[in-house]
Amino acid sequence: MCSRWPASEKQLLLLPPGLWLFFFFVLPLAIVIFFSLCPQDIHGGVLPGFTLEHYRRIADPLYVGIFVQSLKVAAITTMFTLLLAYPTAYCMAFSPKRTKMLLMFLVILPFGTNFLVRMYSFVNILGADGVINTVLLRLGIIHEPLDLIYNMLAVYIGFVYGNLPYMILPIFAALDRMDVSLLEASMDLGAGPVRTFCRITLPYSMPGVAAGIVFVFIPTLGNFVVPEILGGADDILIGNVISRQFLSSRNWPFGSALSATLVFGLMILITMYIRFCDPMGKKRLAAM
């Protein structure tokens, strides 16, 4: 710890981010919670008063089912993203320096285009007269267009594609820091490539993997754009339900209750993840 700063001055440094968080996180969240406890005005507004009716409504199997489905989709998305991102990050980290910079550039390149535009472009790729179907039809491999879009498959493709950089970059950052002599030491001590990967490389990159999982899982859980564009009529996730409460159903209190439930559910999940999975290796510091 840097001791040149007295404690009071160190706290002063926390003021700008503290204010930011207060005005743009704590305050809006408080408003959301406040709304979620107010009765609904049938004309779309919020009436003063107190009710737990909206939370009771969430317990309806319909909404519980959508919550569970959203968790499942986010988990599967995270898993497939990880499976694609890890080998990519590994290849990047152990490439020669010039190749490394080029690959890094290619990973970041999609950020130059708006997320919505990229999602709509999948309509042209996966659609009935999209690139894939057109090519396969012309080659005579298929005679009917494949159902590639407006279903869960398309939603997963969109999610995994959109999230890949957020998984690749933290894993790459972790692996890139690794001293190659650690791998040599492992081999030197008699471990083959597979064992070296499992016992040295993988544990070493775990903080990156843990960060990537959080970066992918949380935004996916609340995302409503991808199912809207690429999903079918029945492919509804919790994000879609919330957005509909605010936009088309005009039921702000119920939408607020769903949002608050999602936020607190996530907080509990992340706390458990940090406590029980020890992704940052905090336990080993406690072993001092």
Partner: peptide, 19 residues
């Protein structure tokens, strides 16, 4: 390959496994 050789190395950077 290195893992089949009956020799061991003390590295300049020590290369101790940090985890």
């Amino acid at each position: 390959p290195p893992h089949r050789r009956d020799v061991n190395t003390v590295f300049q950077s020590y290369a101790l496994f940090p985890h």
